[in-house]
Design a protein around this nucleic acid. Structure first.
Lengths: 158, 158
DNA sequence: CTCCTTATTGGTAATGGTTTCCATTATCAA
DNA sequence: TTGATAATGGAAACCATTACCAATAAGGAG
């Protein structure tokens, strides 16, 4: 069973080994932060948290490790339009994280995850992808759906 | 009837005046380029075209004017994830442009507009927005839907 | 365990799109 | 025509991200 509590091999070691990547203390720390995070973090957020655990780890390493993790599909990268990317574990431990999208407050930049309406969405996406693939000979690999507006706090402010 | 052929007032003059903005030759040129464009242009694209009409107009003015146009809702700003924003007239002359979304090729960055499936989409969005607004007390103002994949040219390359 | 190849590292400099600054110029209401 | 002030352009600043490079460390071979 995968563990993340220090010494022994953890769930992601296999993914790294299998691709020829080495296990380093920097990568351990970064994965540790991502595993413990409950929301999308920017590279700098991650750097600051990692820095508290191990001040020797540099921002460059954070970016490089995140790039690897995204390419391995272990981490998802999001763009909320505020000029900095956010990162989030794509799977936690054994469990695949649920597919979800985001509500983005255009005033305070708060981001709310939602997993509702996935059935509606699945059906819509299935039809759209099928139709668009055929019409434009486009091989659709992924999609992005985001809603923008005002969160409950901001909508009540003048 | 709105015109865009040089001397007299054109369709957007009223929008500018109404907000206290002045009509300048730079803004005329930029709006002219946008009106004549048939696809999303980057700020630099617009600058280069404007520069051919009037070399005195600087890149800064292009950015500033685009910011105003977006804030007035006359121009839409898109982020296709390649690090530069794209701009497109939100309405052409009297006609509202059709609501559309984008297929983005992750290999060559080509962008295909599509207006298909808007009925499906409208229905899906209507339900999603209604449900999400209620559940999260989120006042949804806008949405973003994009599909990523390989265009017909790139999918056939190794 | 030790050695050796080479992936990885951190700090710094560079990148590139976008913004800010500021002195100069142009718009347009009076 | 004039004056208040919005708009301008060019250069510098900004800022997240990337490239570079000499120093370090992971981990397989022996």
């Amino acid at each position: 069973m995968p563990r993340g509590n220090g010494r022994g091999p953890v769930w992601w070691h296999g993914h790294f080994r299998g691709c020829g990547y080495r296990i380093t203390s920097g990568r351990e720390a970064i994965l540790g932060v991502l595993t413990g995070a409950d929301k999308h973090l920017s590279a700098e957020d991650i750097f600051l948290k990692v820095h508290r655990l191990n001040p020797a780890i540099g921002l460059t390493t954070v970016y490089r490790t995140l790039e690897i993790l995204v390419s391995l599909g272990l981490v998802s990268k999001f763009d909320f339009g505020d000029g900095r990317a956010r990162y989030e574990l794509a799977q936690k431990s054994d469990f695949s994280s649920q597919h979800h999208h985001h509500l983005i407050c255009t005033k305070c930049n708060r981001v709310i995850d939602y997993t509702e309406f996935v059935d509606d969405e699945k059906e819509f996406l299935r039809r759209a992808e099928k139709g668009l693939s055929a019409k434009y000979k486009f091989d659709i690999k992924d999609h992005l759906i985001q809603f923008y507006g005002l969160c409950d706090k901001c909508r009540n402010k003048k």
